[in-house]
């Protein structure tokens, strides 16, 4: 099978789940009519009594890579985990303010988190493949959300693995355990797994912090490839990474957004002294 046919086929499969704006009704029109994927307005977040987020207001542009930078404990991962409500798994976590994905209120208790997490995929700091085969890992999401026959499923798995630039390395051992892969391959597998559910937004929480430079580069290239179709938000401690692969950068400090601008501005002529000190490596 050639790459050409695969590029189109699985997309059609996914369109049944996440239809394109033209074919869809007004519920996703609202999202597509703006140029922002996620909008936060005066968002406050707590873990128990500790306030981790203060008055966060920012708009994540669609189909771009947005980087969150800042010293450890500054709230960037916390904010990321509110974007798809992963914080629900943390007992003491709560938030107030306004956080929207298109017209969906992300903080409303009534929000269907299952559907939300299909639309807003997440890749964690440490690769967390399930103790299953490579194929089953990628097929996990589609099996949950879609009714696919065998060949449709295997096409979708292949497409996802190709998208995540790991297909060549695993195509001959799809039934081998995913835990036998190297760290970098595991992380790309996790990206493939996230892509396979057809998300609009891809959240990446320090996806390269446990990887060697070659794997890191592979994942950065991958983000570059993916930005056409996905809105990507990446948390990173690596200044070079943020400057290399993001379009916009938000600098966080002590639970607040100090500065949010184009990456070029943040790294060349930031308006805040704090930002400048951080990106120059003077603290953090």
């Amino acid at each position: 099978m050639t790459t050409k046919t695969l590029e189109t086929k699985p997309k059609r499969i996914m369109n049944q789940v996440a239809p394109t704006p033209s074919a869809e009704n007004d519920s996703t029109d609202a999202l597509d009519s703006t140029q922002y994927a996620i909008e936060a307005e005066k968002l406050n977040g707590w873990y128990g009594d500790f306030q981790a987020l203060h008055e966060i207001s920012l708009k994540i542009p669609k189909n771009q890579v947005t980087a969150f930078i800042g010293p450890s404990g500054c709230g960037k991962s916390t904010l990321l985990r509110w974007f798809n409500r992963m914080n629900d798994t943390i007992f003491s976590a709560r938030a107030s303010g306004d956080l929207r994905l298109g017209d969906i209120d992300l903080l409303a208790p009534s929000t269907d988190v299952v559907d939300l997490r299909r639309r807003v995929g997440i890749v964690f700091q440490k690769a967390n493949p399930f103790p299953k085969s490579i194929f089953e890992n990628v097929a996990f999401g589609p099996r949950l959300h879609m009714q696919l026959n065998k060949s449709e499923l295997s096409d979708l798995v292949e497409w996802s693995l190709r998208k995540a630039a790991v297909w060549k390395e695993v195509k001959d051992r799809l039934n081998a355990p995913a835990l036998g892969l190297s760290g970098g391959q595991q992380q790309r597998l996790c990206i493939a797994r996230a892509i396979a559910t057809g998300p609009e937004v891809l959240l990446m929480d320090e996806p390269c912090s446990a990887l060697d430079p070659a794997s890191t580069l592979a994942i950065e290239d991958l983000m570059d490839e993916l930005r056409d179709q996905y809105t990507i938000v990446i948390v990173t401690h690596n200044m070079q990474q943020a400057s290399r692969c993001s379009d916009k950068t938000a600098f966080f400090f002590e639970g607040r957004v100090v500065e949010f601008d184009t990456t070029e501005t943040i790294f060349t002529k930031p308006s805040s002294q704090k930002t400048e000190d951080y990106v120059r490596g003077r603290f953090g």
Binding site: N84, M86, T89, V114, D115, L116, R117, R118, G121, I122, F124, K126, N128, P129, F130, P131, F140, G141, L144, H145, C190, R193, A194, T197
Partner: peptide
């Protein structure tokens, strides 16, 4: 590990899934 739970939930699985 909690990371596996998060992985399954992060893909849109329910707690039962």
């Amino acid at each position: 590990p909690k990371s596996l739970r998060d992985g399954a939930l992060g893909l849109g699985g329910t707690r039962f899934d």
